[in-house]
Computed example of a mutant assay.
Amino acid sequence: MVGIVAAIRESVALTATSAVFLLVLAIPQIVSTCMLLHQYEVQSGQETVEVAWQANNMDALQQKHECCGKSSAQDYVHLNQLIPPSCYADLQQTTDHLFLEGCIEKVQSFYESDKQRFIIVSWVLVAFELLCFVLAVFLAISFRNKQRRLQF
């Protein structure tokens, strides 16, 4: 809001203030992106699947990630259990609709891609904040030069 008011009023002080606010906003974003996000440990897909497997709560996981069993549908066969309907696309229990991949790999790749998306969004936000900072500085310089020219 300060930047909008500064641009409308063509105020050097307000424009410089908005540039400082943008820089103050960008610095913690850069620090958190560099230090926290890149060191952030991706949640273990195997751990998540194991907890769901032990709790006998695989249905939601299998439908969401389009997977079956911990490593494949053979996990159910080895336990002499029927393959649950959640292992099939659209819950149609035919062999051509069976999910072939295991949930550990699918959930792990989901967690890793989610982290990657978050890092990309964070860097885009940093770039946008720095671009706005540079534009605010140039706008403040332009307003100052315009005020100087009007004095002659």
Rank of each mutant, 00 (worst) to 15 (best):
Q43K: 13
D90I: 02
Q116T: 13
V137Q: 06
A26D: 03
R148A: 12
L82S: 15
P84A: 04
Q74K: 10
Q54M: 11
L23M: 09
M35T: 14
R148I: 08
C87A: 05
L139M: 15
G69I: 00
H65R: 03
H97M: 12
H78C: 03
V126K: 03
F21D: 00
H97Q: 15
G69F: 01
I30G: 03
S11V: 07
R144W: 11
A73V: 02
R149L: 10
C67P: 00
I30C: 09
F21V: 08
M1S: 15
D90K: 11
A89M: 08
V31T: 08
I4A: 15
Q151A: 11
F21K: 00
R144Q: 15
S86V: 04
L98K: 04
L36G: 11
V51K: 15
D75W: 01
M35E: 12
Q151F: 07
I83L: 04
I30A: 09
F21N: 00
K106F: 05
Y88W: 02
S122Y: 02
Q39P: 01
N80S: 12
A60C: 03
Q108T: 12
V24C: 14
D59K: 02
T15K: 01
R117H: 14
Q92L: 09
P85N: 13
G69Y: 00
Q29L: 13
C103A: 07
L36N: 12
L36F: 12
S109R: 11
S32K: 11
A140D: 06
L135F: 14
I83V: 10
L25T: 08
Y111V: 03
F128Q: 08
V137K: 06
P28W: 02
L23Q: 05
A140C: 14
L37S: 10
Q29C: 10
T94C: 09
I141E: 13
A52L: 06
L100M: 12
V31N: 04
Q74M: 08
L98Y: 06
V49Q: 01
F110E: 07
I4L: 13
C34A: 15
V51I: 15
S86K: 03
L22R: 01
N57Y: 02
M35A: 11
Q74Y: 08
A52I: 02
S11D: 06
N145Q: 13
V49C: 02
C132Y: 07
S18E: 01
L131F: 15
D59N: 13
H97T: 11
I120L: 13
L36H: 09
P28E: 04
Q116H: 12
Q108E: 13
P28Q: 05
F21T: 00
S44Q: 01
E101Q: 14
Q147D: 12
I141W: 07
N57I: 01
A140P: 05
V126E: 03
D96Q: 11
A55T: 07
V31H: 06
L139I: 09
F110P: 00
H97V: 05
